[in-house]
Write a protein that binds this DNA or RNA. Structure first.
Lengths: 343, 343
DNA sequence: GTGAAAGCGCTAACAC
DNA sequence: GTGTTAGCGCTTTCAC
């Protein structure tokens, strides 16, 4: 790393300092850093020596100005909703930061005004502060992707272009239907016959996709789904109420939920009725949140492979920013099931 | 001379473009942006008009190079531990991003190699990629603060310099002792007499600080603490085991825990023994995590005012980066108690 | 109040 | 292979 303990540099060394110390021109130092193959090995060694001695690192601003790139990826984050178990965003941020580093990129976070999903993007773009964006909330009606595309801004989406299947931008997503199929089949394998669904309202593409995994699994075993499904808001209390109604009217022995938040609502109802999750009624959530991991007796949950999502996003970003820029098709990844005490 | 129109459609306008359109020199445009007071009002208006017409925004890289500042704040994030309820970091990141924006800063995230807590800082510093750092994990033995100080790198710590009370760097922290005093007093007010403590091992400054709040509250009511405390690892299973032992040997009617993770361990034990949290045994956690918010019947928890922490951090950062740089003393904030069904 | 000149530190082109 | 030249877009002197 060449860190120099104890040294207190007033001003960081520049290319010129290294050039002087190594007895070469500035350009040769630049080549030593960016195109080492161009140098004769003894010159390279001498320059590298000087670089190490001075603890030189290229000035970012200067390099950015010259190369017209910042090696920064912009990511808009919105405040996590209180009272829910949703933490996909935070886990994804961690993965993205890790993966980006390996590709030589840093992640620049900017705040999202919920009222104006486009705010922030434009400024960053016009001031050339970032090389590209990663867009995360591509649910219905979110105009970011379309807007960025008209601006010719490089970006990769985590999430399919649900509303616009003709969209040509690169995206990475997790197969929610496959995840819920997995969850439902897991329950059916354990002998459950009446598996209920609690999901989101019909205008949610993601919600309908996940729901289709449940109904697909039920149908494939010839089991009825009528009266076993409920569509509600993504809150704990909605999950609690929906599960209470379903238990009374449809007598399911298991629940598959579109989110851990809803699944926690089911656990609330079970707890209120003195039913034990996993013994009396099985419950499966979606997201493998911290909540699912620590709530007694453990909530079985569909886990999105966010590390892989981040890796694919960065790969897409690299080809997008490469010379020449390469198009990257959509990538759909398979989730897994984290089985715990609730099923 | 203006850029060839149509050649590079997406190239943002520059100072020169604005100057040409407004019929002034580049420097006047620069002044219009940075020192509007210097311009005659009609000139200013004309320039602002041209800026609006072209959608001009100063190029970051160029400005950074010239002013030797990036308006970027570096924040190292480490992977969130799976199987715990800890989410302080993520909540803080959100708050910091929001607050920084108002001060004209963006947050640059970089990955933390757990094996080398200094990695990343050095590169960012030497390449002048960030103006300052926000350091978050200042627990015992973390050398970041001391190291950054010897490098004269501007930084503000979220967390007191526990190991080095002589440290002079700015910091912001939350009074954990006050939080646990609050939690314990809350339980005592509800009639509990035997309130147990489950905290971290003795070498954790933060853990001992929080513990002191519990013992302080107990002592102030003349209640004994002997045999009522346990020090363990910060895991659910440790909390589960510790609470089982305490219930058997000390018969507490309530638990105060150093973290929501430990509190969830207590809930596990209660659930195993058929005890109802909040009715049979009261439990209070620390962090007000999502877990505390959604687990039935709701986990009472000490909530750190992270929005205020972020605000204080940014304030400290601004005075640190101001001209002249001003020292900023340590700031200690009071947590609150989010009361839920478990108490 | 406005404009001309200089240069931040770097790299892309081209000489040699 | 290496050095020289010319900017990237901006702000900071300092004339006028």
């Amino acid at each position: 790393m060449g860190r120099m303990p104890g040294r207190v540099p007033s001003a960081p060394p520049t290319l010129a300092d290294v050039a002087e110390l190594a007895g070469v021109s500035r350009q040769t130092v630049s080549n030593a850093v960016n195109n080492p193959d161009l140098l004769r090995s003894d010159t390279l060694l001498r320059v590298q020596d000087a670089i190490a001695t001075l603890g030189y690192l290229p000035n970012r601003a200067a390099r950015n100005l010259r190369t017209r790139s910042s090696h920064l990826i912009g990511l808009r984050i919105t405040a996590a909703q209180e009272g829910t178990a949703n933490a996909t965003m935070d886990r994804f941020v961690h993965s993205l930061v890790d993966t980006s580093r390996e590709a030589g990129y840093h992640v620049l976070l900017f705040a999202g005004d919920p009222l104006d999903p486009l705010a922030g993007y434009d400024d960053l773009l016009r001031s050339t502060a970032v090389d590209a964006f990663v867009v995360t909330d591509t649910y219905l009606g979110n105009p970011q992707a379309a807007w960025l595309q008209t601006r010719r801004a490089p970006f990769v989406a985590f999430g399919r272009p649900w509303a616009d299947p003709e969209a040509t931008h690169p995206w990475v997503d997790v197969d929610g239907a496959a995840g819920c199929d997995l969850a439902t089949s897991h329950l059916l394998d354990r002998g459950h016959q009446r598996v209920a669904w609690i999901g989101w309202r019909k205008d949610s593409f993601i919600g309908e996709d996940r729901r289709s995994g449940w109904s697909r699994a039920m149908r494939s075993r010839g089991l009825p789904t009528t009266g076993l499904a409920s569509r509600v808001e993504d809150t704990v209390s909605s999950g609690r109420e929906a599960s209470a109604v379903l238990l009374d009217e449809a007598h399911p022995s298991a629940f598959v939920c579109a989110s851990d938040t809803l699944a926690m609502g089911v656990l609330h109802t079970l707890s209120q009725r003195g039913l034990v999750p996993g013994r009396d009624v099985a419950v499966v959530g979606f997201d493998d949140s911290q909540v699912a991991q620590v709530v007694p007796p453990g909530l079985t949950s569909v886990r999105q492979p966010l590390e892989d999502v981040a890796a694919e996003v960065v790969t897409a970003l690299e080809s997008l920013l490469g010379h020449p820029p390469a198009a990257h098709p959509g990538v759909l990844l398979e989730p897994t099931l984290a089985v715990r005490g609730s099923s």
